[in-house]
Design a protein around this nucleic acid. Structure first.
Lengths: 359, 359
DNA sequence: CTGTTAGCGCCTTCAG
DNA sequence: CTGAAGGCGCTAACAG
């Protein structure tokens, strides 16, 4: 053993240092530092330990803790997405904030949608002893998970297992939870708010026809129209990429073949911005001549655009929070097998008005 | 019961297991698994070890490695930003990709711009033995770092130490590197490309007057104008938030007080979108009647808007990459003391045309 | 109620 | 070229 305090401040103080200074054993230090339940420590001993901790500014070494406890106060957050859209920002924010409250940290990985990289990422995260795993996608999508994931509690955010179509519901209890936005209800709500405003004349400039979200939203939209006595088959439905330019193109095509509908539903807010741009460039006033409804409630976009977009909110932050809460709250460890559907509430802003008086 | 079979059979194989199966010592396993330099292992022994690794699907435990080596193959990425803008997405993407190549992972934290939380975050990251730290902000800004950060190699992305104004240049060598976009050159370039197109009649709808980026960009813009014989004081300069609605408001005010300039420079792309919207709604064609120039080259916005924005690219992805490269590349560890300025190249698209013929 | 004693899984001198 | 031994810093079982 080397002469105790001869090191010139370089070495980080260890639990042994604290124990020595407080005149107790290392175990005792551990007990008071961690408030170990079932161990009552005398007031004076506790004081001495705490003072020593303070004096040395001792902080426990997480790697050593991890080695011992097999846990790491860490959640692996995997974004299974293309490089361009690499991270699911709002979901990360939600998960981060909850994790932070629990003293856990997020370790981030992106996979570029490659199954090989997904597998590698999960293996690596498990090597790092993450306590739990969140797998998220930007667009709702079916994914296939490597088996590695079964070794940790896992939440799927915005994606689901199962080849296509609807998520598969495992029959056996599992440590896998699925969190999905209720897009069908969202599509329904968007149509509903337009119907309520008096619209009977729709165009739906939807996203890519093969995207799960699109299919769901259109289904909900159709149901709402039908229920209101409006035949969805007589309304205009077109598809495009979920981007501004696609919305712009679609809107221009729509404008070219007047008469216009009284309301345009858009696949998402970016498409709606394209629509707004095209409408403006064609001299058509929103919402006086035609109303526009978006989808997503995208940050720094939907509320900020002029006129501000009436839209349907995708609860990404909430999904991130829910995922982390589920993983970190001890009383929630009874994993439900069926997917949990999160609501997509309508947000009413200026781009929706009553239909213009028919001439 | 620690160690007993509460875990149903699925104990992870350890190095000892591999050693036993291969009939060698643990050290030998370590040597071949890590290709330890200066240790030559016989071909047949190596084969036996590798086979055992394969057979048991052995993977080293990172926590144990970390305890032993005091490293963690991990970079702490701190976004010192408000909750809404919690993550610096493109910079994270850049840093992630480089880290991934080096087998390192990013641990993410946001601080909500609170110095207290920044301090806590850094302390925690150090407890977790991160090998290095990246501190990033969304808007370029001066920050004050807690001393804790001196214990690791650190890169500041988009922020700098020093009370205000220009970043302070430490006189002593330091482990702190600063990466900043050359906003002044960016502002210059934006003005320059407009001047080259023939414009002499400007409006600059800039961001908040107290933001560092704004000050820099305006300075560069002024220099370019002056150099071209255009008096910047006779051009219109207005300030607003870096959001779509602010651009919209500013543009409406501009339109109300004709005559219009021939080109409108915007504080960023979001403001430019607001300008585009306002112009469209006023029946003014871009770029035929007036040209618009953005800033940022924001993903899914600048290139996608119609007309597509001529803009100045903020090299956030590159800055993230540069930060991680600097931290991970052994041959780059000679930290420069002065900030490194990254170029902001002009991206020419449709929203810039020649000035309209003066009547 | 406190202290002693083993390891957690790995890396790294140091002998052989 | 290979194996034995010690310890990184901490926690959990078991005495005292």
């Amino acid at each position: 053993m080397e002469g105790s305090e001869s090191d010139p401040g370089e070495r980080r103080p260890t639990m042994a240092d604290v124990a020595r200074r407080a005149g107790v054993s290392r175990a005792t230090v551990s007990f008071v530092v961690n408030d170990t339940p079932g161990q009552s420590i005398g007031m004076q001993t506790r004081r001495r330990v705490l003072d020593a901790v303070e004096a040395l500014s001792y902080r426990p070494n997480r790697a050593a803790q991890g080695l011992r406890t097999h846990r790491s106060a860490t959640i692996g957050f995997v974004t299974h997405e293309t490089p361009e859209r690499s991270f699911a920002d709002p979901a990360i924010t939600g998960a981060h904030d909850v994790a932070d409250e629990f003293g856990s940290r997020l370790v981030l990985v992106t996979t570029g949608r490659s199954p090989v990289r997904l597998r590698a990422a999960l293996d690596d995260l498990i090597d790092r002893q993450v306590d739990a795993i969140i797998v998220a996608t930007s667009g709702t999508r079916a994914i296939t998970l490597p088996d590695a994931v079964r070794s940790r509690p896992t939440v799927l955010v915005n994606c689901f297992e199962g080849e296509a179509g609807r998520p598969s519901v495992p029959t056996l209890p599992t440590r896998l939870t699925t969190l999905l936005p209720d897009e069908q209800a969202g599509g329904h709500a968007a149509a509903r708010v337009a119907l309520d405003a008096g619209h009977r004349n729709f165009a739906f400039l939807a996203g890519k026809a093969d995207s799960w979200a699109t299919v769901e939203r259109v289904a909900g939209y159709r149901t709402a129209l039908t229920a209101a006595g409006v035949d969805p088959r007589r309304q205009l439905l077109a598809h495009g990429r979920y981007e501004i330019d696609a919305g712009h193109d679609l809107a221009r095509a729509l404008i070219a073949t007047r008469p216009l509908p009284t309301v345009i539903l858009c696949g998402n807010d970016r498409m709606a911005v394209g629509v707004l741009l095209a409408l403006g460039q064609a001299g058509i006033q929103v919402p006086d001549e035609v109303s526009v409804i978006g989808y997503d409630d995208q940050f720094a976009l939907a509320a900020s655009v002029r006129p501000a977009l009436t839209t349907v909110r995708l609860p990404y932050v909430e999904m991130g929070r829910a995922a982390a809460t589920h993983l970190l709250c001890p009383d929630r460890h009874l994993a439900p097998t069926a997917p949990q559907w999160l609501p997509c509430p309508v947000v009413v802003r200026d781009s929706l008005g009553p239909p213009r008086a028919v001439p």
